[in-house]
Design a protein around this nucleic acid. Structure first.
Lengths: 236, 236
DNA sequence: GTGCAAGATTGGTACCAGCCAATGTTGGCT
DNA sequence: AGCCAACATTGGCTGGTACCAATCTTGCAC
């Protein structure tokens, strides 16, 4: 049996089928998909629900299910820098600036939910897109969660490394976005004039139990980066 | 029979039941809710799915369903400036800078989905929080949607005015957030030093049919404003 | 042709039944 | 006391069935 749930497999199959299709192309009916894939209509609906929630398609009762028009901007999801850049069709890269263990301190301790005098591993990197600077990234982990991290290759995707080596899976994150004036160091590293502004994103990443796993502060070049998302009126 | 679907009724009932409960309070098991409310377990799951998606509760397989801890920062919803400020416990205010009709122009026309040579109504306001400047706001509407708008009182909530006078209901919006360097005019109006940075939010508000209704550019003071939200891992 | 009512089609809701996988609990063994 | 295997509980997944509500199609009446 597949390791994946059937509705998940079906979702991927359907998604693959519709990517590239022009908007408003009708999908087969739920009953037809059900028959064709040899699964129950319940399972089909589960897959379609997920795709509808993701904005890939829309449904009209009585009419059918259709490929959704390309959304201007997708709603926000948690992505790593690498994923984010690839979504923008840029090639991600990294230059390691520093890596080591330091005291947490009050502010960081609060964000990570640890004691202020405990150790945290800090990784500073200059992140590149198509070879030129995009942002400055400062990642912090509770030291006991990532023993030996500083000996690893830290130029690739940290998320992937965390997952494969330490079994850490970041499921959600709280983010705070702010505009800041770049200091001398930052503007030099990012290759922009002193006094330029930057977009600062502070993030606390959490695992499936909402336990803080990492605290990251990223400063993006204002001229190369923006954040796009769709908001809706809350229900009730 | 109720006009509402059962799963929707149940969702509201459950939501009412958990609001006020301390975080991590366990809910009854799905099978128990099912029995107690006289609905099938499928229907219960549908209601719980919605509440989980809304972040009101979380589920752990094998353990149970629990009241979600109060989110540090709510996931993004569409709010007016007035609502936004009140949520931050600040008193919203306004100073009207300009209001009138202008040509759309290429860029604005694209955002609003109108012809470049058509008329748009423009309202410029300095928005205040507890009496001091918070942001510069530039709102644009297709002129034919809001006849006579410039004769109204434009110092209060535009959203409310739009709704009551023109029946315009903004349901969703695409937003683009960027850091910018403030120009002389902006920094003077906002009362910050020249060269300070600001947070620019470009928004296109749409009605229930996803037709653009308004295009707004807002520039916030970087030292007084941030954007907070929670992101989750989407599916692949 | 046009208009419209009847029927067919399609997604929406609801129920039942059963098994699986993750978690929590119990109780025996050491 | 502490460890761990067996068991019970709980949410997750899948299949099946039935009917409802919105929409589209057909074909008759004019």
């Amino acid at each position: 049996m597949a390791r994946q749930a059937k509705h998940e497999e079906l979702r991927q199959a359907l998604l693959a089928g519709i990517t590239g299709s022009p908007p408003h192309t009708p999908l087969p009916t739920e009953r037809e998909i059900s028959a064709r894939h040899g699964v129950s209509r319940n399972t089909v609906r589960q897959a379609l629900d997920a795709l509808e929630a993701a904005g890939s398609l829309y449904r009209v009762q009585g009419a059918g299910t259709f490929v959704a028009p390309p959304v201007v901007s997708k709603s926000l999801t948690l992505t790593s820098f690498s994923e984010d850049m690839r979504a923008r069709e840029l090639e991600p890269g990294s230059r390691l600036l520093a890596a080591g263990t330091v005291r947490a301190g009050r502010q960081l301790a609060e964000r990570l939910g640890v004691e202020p005098d405990s150790d945290v591993v800090r990784v500073s990197r200059l992140r590149l897109a198509d070879g030129s600077p995009m942002c400055l990234e400062n990642v912090h982990f509770p030291a006991e969660r990532v023993p030996g991290l500083t000996d690893e290759d830290l130029t690739g995707s940290l998320y992937m490394l965390l997952n494969e080596r330490y079994g850490l899976d970041i499921r959600s994150a709280d983010q705070i976005v702010r505009a800041v004036d770049l200091d001398e160091t930052a503007s030099a590293l990012l290759g922009v004039p002193l006094g330029s502004s930057g977009l600062r994103v502070q993030r606390v990443g959490m695992d499936h139990r909402d336990t803080p796993v990492e605290a990251t502060t990223t400063i993006y070049r204002a001229d190369r980066y923006d954040i796009r998302f769709t908001v809706r009126r809350g229900q009730q």
